[in-house]
């Protein structure tokens, strides 16, 4: 049977993709960030998941204002990196796992999570930057990906507790899949940041640290964080941190924190990263 072995939380700052693509990951600005992920790439080489289940948000690329699904599950055979306005990132096409996706889609809906099914979908930096941070620059990504896009652009994003419950349903779906597959779940986005209007540049390192502590050790409590707290304390775009709770819900109640990294800034954003293993 398929099972979930671990979880990864990771920011998706587009500038990190640009730094990787331009080969400037060692400079004074980006060097400390990529250094924080060196451990992670080594860990990932040992972890060797058969599939990554990747929770991310689209930035009006696959979904502009015409269609805004709250939860959209990728069910295709591949996902092509999109042109976000400066040409597609020079990264490999993301291969899907159609059979596992189909199983998860059916399982989730019968488990009362009425997700949208995406048989074709381009993916933007929200998905490809975490892949780069965790896998580096391979010619092909080492495993297929099942993507779950979450709306965090138009308010309201789904509540943290709903994301946490969805994570639990995703776990039930994966654990009822007949093939032996080791699955690593990614929750992406964050941490505190505000990109817009006069309060742009907001960073709240103290809040970010507390968020990570609660996520790891008291997820029942942390998943109750209300939207107004995210908006006020972590910035208008910091609310995308609810996606980390999908990942956390898919893991055991007890997890071991293998790695934590935090850095300010990448462009306008605080970068946060966790590796959690089931215990």
């Amino acid at each position: 049977m398929a099972y979930i072995s671990s979880g990864v939380a990771c920011s998706h700052v587009p500038a990190l993709g640009v730094a990787s693509d331009k080969g400037i990951t060692g400079d004074d600005y980006y060097g400390p960030i990529f250094k924080g992920f060196e451990f992670s790439k080594e860990w990932m080489e040992k972890e060797k998941p058969d599939v990554v289940f990747l929770v991310y948000n689209d930035h009006c690329t696959a979904f502009d204002a015409r269609v805004i699904p709250t939860f959209a599950l990728g069910c295709g055979t591949e996902y092509v990196p999109a042109d976000e306005g400066w040409g597609p990132r020079p990264v490999p096409v993301v291969k899907g796992h159609r059979n596992l996706s189909a199983h998860i889609a059916q399982s989730l809906i019968l488990d009362e999570f009425d997700i949208t099914i995406m048989n074709e979908m381009e993916v933007d930096h929200g998905l490809t930057v975490p892949m780069t941070m965790m896998f580096g620059q391979p010619d092909e990504w080492p495993c297929p990906v099942v993507p779950l896009a979450v709306n965090v652009v138009q308010y309201p994003a789904p509540l943290g507790r709903r994301c946490f419950a969805l994570g639990k349903a995703i776990r039930r779906a994966i654990e009822s899949y007949g093939e032996d597959l080791k699955v690593c779940v990614f929750g992406t986005g964050g941490m505190s940041h505000q990109l817009q209007h006069k309060r742009a540049g907001l960073i709240n390192a103290e809040w970010d640290a507390r968020f990570m502590d609660l996520l790891v050790n008291e997820p029942d409590k942390g998943s109750q964080i209300e939207h107004i707290e995210y908006l006020r304390e972590a910035g208008s775009e910091g609310i995308e941190l609810v996606m980390w709770y999908v990942m956390r819900g898919a893991l055991n109640d007890n997890v071991e924190e293998i790695h934590r990294f935090y850095h300010v800034p990448a462009s306008n954003t605080a970068v946060g990263h966790l590796i959690l293993e089931n215990r």
Binding site: S192, K198, A200, I203, S267, N268, A270
Partner: peptide
Amino acid sequence: LMTGMGEDYRAMMVGGGRSI
């Protein structure tokens, strides 16, 4: 541009960002 800080904005971010 949105914050009216111009070039100073980048320095603010390098210095840890806008305090809460």
